[in-house]
Simulated scan of single mutants.
Amino acid sequence: MSHHVIEMPDLGIGTFRLEGKTAYNSVKMALDIGFRHIDTAQIYGNEEHVGKAIKDSSVPRSEIFITTKVWNDKLNSAQFIESVKQSLEKLQLDYVDLLLIHWPSASNGEKMSEYLTELKKVKELGLAKHIGVSNFTIANLKEAMQTLDAREIFTNQIEVHPYLTNTKLRAFCQQQGIHVTAYMPFAVGEVLKDDVIVDIAKKHDASPAQVVLAWINAHKMTTIPSSTKRENLADNFDDSVKLDHEDLDRIDALDKHKRLANPDFAPDWDY
C-alpha cells in the first residue's frame, strides 16, 4: 500500500451522528480501551465534545491521531482556513493529524482547484499534518490530482462495507498510492445480521463485527466504526480474528451496491 499511512492507526473511532454527552462518552471510553484514532467533522456538531474527551483523557496528544473535515459551505478561499481554525478551537488543539474535504460538493459551485489550494495552505501553516479527501470518485480524484500531487492525498475516506465493496474506486486508489479509509463498515448494523457474516463469525468463535473489521483489515484499509457501548468498543478493538481466503471471497461476494450515504449533493458514483 502507500508509504505514509503507518502513523494512522488501522482502526479508529467514528463520531458521525453522536451528539453532546454521547459523543464525549464514546470518545472517552474508546481512548480508555486503547483506540488512538478519532474521526470527526465540522458538520457533526460534536468537535467540542470530542475535544473535551481528548483533553479529559490521560492519553497524551502526541499519541492520538485526530481527523476532521471541512464542510461544503466553507470550500472557498474566503472561509476555508478560518473554519479550520474554528474547528481547532473547538477541539482544543493546535493541529489535526488529518484534514479532509468532506464532499466534492462546494455549496456555491467553487472550483476544486480553489478549495484544494486552501487545503494545501492549511498543511503549510501547520494546522494539519496531513491532508486528504472524502467521498471522492475516480473522476474527482483525477481532477484533484491536477492541484495536489497524489502523494499529498493521505487518504480517500469512502463508504465501504460488505454490501458496498466499492471495488473499482478502491483499485484506482491503490494504483495511485492513495490509502482508503472505510466508513460505515457495518452498514449501520445491517451486515452484522447477514447469514454469511454470522456463519464466518461462528467458525472463528468471533463476533460478526470482528469478522467485518478483519475483512476490511485484510484488504489493507483503515476503518472507523462508531459505537456508544463500552462492550462493543472493546469487541471492535480486539483484532485477533484472521480470515482465510475462502472467508474473504464469501464476504466479497456479498456486494450489492447498497449505498447508505447518498445525499442529494453526492457526486456521480463509480459502479
Rank of each mutant, 00 (worst) to 15 (best):
M1I: 13
M1W: 07
S2D: 06
S2E: 12
H3D: 15
H3F: 12
H4R: 12
H4E: 14
V5T: 14
M8S: 03
D10K: 15
L11D: 08
L11I: 11
T15C: 03
L18P: 03
T22Q: 15
V27E: 04
M29W: 03
A30V: 05
D32T: 13
I33K: 13
G34I: 04
G34A: 09
D39F: 08
N46W: 01
E47Y: 01
E48D: 06
E48G: 08
E48L: 09
E48H: 03
H49N: 15
G51N: 08
I54V: 11
I54L: 15
D56Y: 08
S57T: 11
S58Q: 06
S58M: 07
S58D: 12
V59Q: 07
P60Q: 11
S62V: 14
E63D: 15
I64G: 09
I66S: 00
N72F: 01
K74A: 10
K74W: 13
N76D: 14
S77P: 13
Q79H: 15
F80M: 00
S83Y: 12
K85C: 00
S87C: 03
E89A: 06
L93D: 13
Y95E: 11
D97I: 00
L100R: 10
L100C: 11
I101T: 00
W103F: 15
W103L: 04
P104T: 09
A106D: 02
S107Y: 02
N108D: 13
E110D: 15
S113Y: 08
Y115A: 01
E118W: 04
E118F: 09
L119Y: 05
K120V: 08
K123Y: 02
L125M: 12
A128D: 00
K129E: 07
H130G: 07
I131F: 06
G132K: 05
V133G: 03
S134P: 01
F136Y: 15
T137L: 09
A139Y: 05
N140W: 06
N140Y: 07
M145R: 09
Q146N: 14
D149I: 00
Q157G: 08
Q157Y: 01
E159S: 07
P162G: 02
L164M: 04
N166K: 00
T167L: 11
L169M: 08
L169N: 07
A171K: 09
A171N: 01
Q174M: 02
Q174A: 12
Q176D: 09
V180Y: 00
T181I: 11
A187H: 05
D195T: 11
I200M: 04
I200G: 06
S207K: 10
Q210C: 07
V211S: 03
V212I: 12
W215L: 09
N217V: 05
A218P: 14
H219C: 08
T222D: 14
T222H: 15
I224H: 05
P225N: 05
S227P: 02
T228P: 07
K229W: 04
D235F: 03
D235T: 12
D238N: 15
D239L: 07
L243I: 09
D244H: 06
D244W: 01
H245A: 15
H245I: 06
D252K: 09
A253C: 05
A253W: 09
K256I: 05
R259W: 10
N262C: 05
N262I: 13
F265L: 02
F265E: 13
P267F: 08
D268S: 04
W269Q: 10
W269A: 13
D270K: 08
D270F: 06
Y271F: 15
